[in-house]
Design a protein around this nucleic acid. Structure first.
Length: 411
DNA sequence: TCTGGGGTCCTTTTCCTT
DNA sequence: TCTGAAGGAAAAGGACCC
């Protein structure tokens, strides 16, 4: 009897199909097939409250009672759009006002992250019941290591992928697409091959036929900028990229990026599936209803600034973290932005302390142009309570004294 | 004309110390 | 004391992703 072959590395990438829109259609099946865009900021009223008041259940609200894009004013953008809406040329990241011109009859649903998170937790729990080595990649995506899962090797992973797909659908009514390959890089590409509700299996030997003909942009990590630069050098496909010399890539894109491009184009990627990760930073930011001026709208800005600091502090405390790099982010009316950071000598999760440090950072930024966005970030995080809490105020004061506020204490 | 929010990671610049 | 090199850390910017 031959000894059983050692398992081959099989990594799956699972991507929920049109996740936000699909979750919305579970709640509002009457919208199926209609142009719907999801975006904008307003909070949706709570379903449970609505039903407690004896009002019409959401799934029975007539289509005519949903708000449409027509006449929309405001700064929101589209987070996602149903296929029916996309046919009018609207799509993700487009301003809602522009979308209103293209498709005024489209129904507008505000995003409801609480609901998406709920379904996200549900489908992920189903996966880890079956295959415990799972890496979170945001609300609607995961990597799963099939290598040592019973059945994970059968038909290159197809059997297990099918099982997971079915379990998710039976529980939630949602569909997903899965790619299974020797590593995360190829699995991520593969999950796009058979969308929606499909399974694609990629083996190492499929590189030339299945991967090399694809556009470089299909590599996760090559965005518009890198793609543009590649094109300037006559490189359009992954195969053309793979044909380039390693040294040329390093000379052209730098040591790290060049070596990575070379490996990626040859389908090489040895990153493990990480089952847990620690956050590096937490932030809150907001785009104003109208552009604000640092002097003329000082009171309003100050209020927003304080609120952002309180929100970040609350996020940190709720999740049990503290950090020592406090930063602010500004975006001006011309959409250009700046950031300013300040590193304390200790960690904090205290709203007032964050507010003071962020205020000092803000003083170092130009405030002569009107602002459209303000953000507050806390980085260099660690778990709360790992370090002794020193005299926080003294440290802050020393920084404050060093910078010695000019006049007026704007913030 | 329009362009959200919350992240990670990488590169370059700047500043400090030796 | 000045100057420059070198290296590290912090700051700043930007690309990218969902």
């Amino acid at each position: 009897m031959p000894s059983p072959a050692s398992p081959v590395r099989r990594i799956a990438h699972l991507d929920m199909d049109a996740f936000y829109a699909s979750v919305e259609l579970l709640r509002y099946p009457q919208l199926k097939g209609l142009p719907v865009v999801i975006g904008g900021g307003r909070r949706r009223e709570d379903d449970a409250l609505r039903e407690a008041r004896g009002e019409t259940p959401l799934h029975q609200i007539p289509v005519s009672e949903f708000p449409v894009l027509s006449g929309y004013t405001g700064r929101g953008v589209i987070t996602t759009a149903t296929y029916a809406a996309r046919q009018f040329g609207v799509g993700s990241a487009m301003g809602l006002m522009k979308a209103a011109k293209l498709c005024p009859q489209a129904i507008l649903l505000p995003v409801d992250f609480a609901q998406y998170r709920h379904y996200s937790a549900r489908f992920k729990a189903i996966i880890t019941d079956i295959a415990p080595v799972m890496e979170n990649r945001g609300v609607d995506e995961v990597y799963i290591d099939f290598t040592d899962v019973p059945g994970g090797q059968r038909e290159g992973g197809r059997v297990l992928a099918r099982l997971i797909q079915k379990a998710i659908f039976d529980d939630t009514g949602l569909t997903c697409s899965v790619g299974v390959a020797p590593n995360k890089l190829l699995a991520k590409m593969a999950s796009e091959f058979k969308k929606p509700n499909g399974i694609a299996i990629v083996h190492e030997s499929d590189l030339e036929t299945m991967v090399w003909p694809l556009a470089c942009r299909k590599i996760n990590g090559i965005g518009p900028k890198a793609d543009e630069k590649l094109k300037r050098h006559g490189i359009e496909t992954i195969g053309q990229l793979a044909a380039r010399d390693l040294q040329w890539l390093i000379d052209t894109f730098g040591q790290r990026t060049g070596a990575w491009l070379h490996a990626a184009s040859h389908g090489q990627d040895d990153r493990p599936v990480e089952t847990e990760s620690e956050p590096v930073s937490m932030s809150r930011e907001t785009t104003f209803e109208r552009d604000l001026h640092a002097v003329r709208d000082r009171a309003e800005l100050g209020t927003i600034f304080t609120r952002l600091c309180e929100q970040v502090a609350d996020d940190l405390q709720r999740k049990g973290y503290e950090g020592k790099t406090i930063g602010i982010k500004l975006r001006y009316d011309d959409f250009k932005g700046v950031t300013r950071d300040l590193t304390l000598d200790h960690c904090t999760a205290d709203a007032q302390e964050i507010r003071r440090a962020a205020g000092l950072a803000l003083k170092r930024a130009p405030l002569d142009k009107r602002l459209r966005l303000l953000g507050v970030r806390v980085g260099s995080l660690q778990k709360q309570g790992l370090a002794p809490a020193p005299s926080a105020q003294a440290a802050i004061n020393s920084v404050a004294n060093a910078l010695q506020a000019e006049t007026g204490q704007l913030f």
